[in-house]
Simulated scan of single mutants.
Amino acid sequence: MPMIDRDGTPLAYEFTPGEAPAVVFLGGFKSDMQGTKALALEAWARARGQAFLRLDYSGHGQSGGTFEAGSIGAWYADALAVIAHEITQPCVLVGSSMGGWIALLIAREHPSRVAGLVTIAAAPDFTEDGYWASFDEAQRVALFEAGRVAVPSDYGEPYVITKHLIEEGRERLVLRSPLPLPVPTRFLQGTADADVPEAWAHRLLAHAEGPDIRLTLVKGADHRFSEPDQIALIERSVEEVLDRIAP
């Protein structure tokens, strides 16, 4: 598997050459590039001859580093490093959950790198509006005294949320300042998502600024958004964005 080094940490990725603009899949919190959506999109891109990139952030999947040492800024830098290594032209970012936040950060900070955007259950600012906002006083005290707190997860072992993750995340918030998205943008959200409330999708739609931004709600879809019809919707959304990119 290809690897690049970023500040001493090996980052794993898979790149499929093809036509530009490349489609880049950015996974979620503690997920990896072997997930259903990443692999399905890779197969879809290969079938149409589109360049495609998927990657593991540090502390995720086959990349080096530890999850607990990570932060939104570190994973954002990981994504930028891998993209820059393989892709020279503007690309279409497909961000799932936390990957949606990272995609929005890239679009805001490096607009010349982005030709289009699709998010799936995007979770911008989730360290602040999700974890920190939900912590009770005992958890907040534990976070600051021990530097970490374990939070139950529906996806396996508890997530260890660190003080560094919360504090560094406050430097990366995208819903507290202007968020220009001048490229074709599609937000996808399930109404039965127990991790990212539907209201977050509406807030993102209201906050983002751009001429071609749409939100699609799927009644009954959960956070995984990986059923066959939902995968097909992701593929159609990426195709629509590709078709609407100005030549």
Rank of each mutant, 00 (worst) to 15 (best):
S31H: 14
A107Q: 03
Q50V: 07
E86P: 01
L104I: 02
G70F: 12
F29V: 06
R108P: 09
W44S: 03
W44D: 14
H110Q: 15
I120H: 00
T16D: 07
Y13I: 02
Y76P: 04
A47H: 11
A22S: 10
A77D: 15
D56W: 01
G18Q: 10
G35Q: 08
A45D: 04
W101E: 11
E128K: 08
V94I: 11
A51S: 09
F52G: 06
H60P: 07
L80R: 15
R54F: 01
T36V: 14
V82G: 02
D5W: 03
H85G: 12
F29G: 04
G61H: 04
S112H: 09
V114D: 05
L80K: 10
K30C: 06
V118F: 00
G18T: 13
K30H: 15
W44Q: 06
R113P: 06
I102G: 10
A79F: 05
K37M: 12
A38H: 15
A79R: 02
E109G: 07
Q62D: 12
L39I: 15
G99N: 05
T16L: 15
A43M: 08
W75Y: 11
A103E: 00
A121H: 00
R6I: 14
P111C: 07
S112L: 10
W44V: 02
V94S: 12
E128Y: 09
P124F: 08
R46Q: 15
A51V: 10
W75E: 13
F15Y: 15
D7P: 10
A43I: 03
E86C: 14
A77I: 09
D78Y: 13
A77Y: 12
I4H: 01
Y13E: 12
T9P: 13
S58R: 15
L93W: 08
A12K: 07
G27F: 01
L55R: 05
Q62G: 11
G65Y: 00
E19L: 14
T88D: 10
A20Y: 09
K37V: 09
D125C: 06
A103Q: 10
Q50F: 00
A123R: 08
G35P: 00
D125T: 02
D125L: 03
E14Q: 15
T127N: 08
M98R: 09
F52Q: 09
Q50S: 06
G95D: 09
F25K: 11
R54Q: 03
W44C: 03
M33Y: 08
D78V: 10
G35L: 14
W75P: 06
F25H: 14
H60S: 12
A45E: 04
G61P: 12
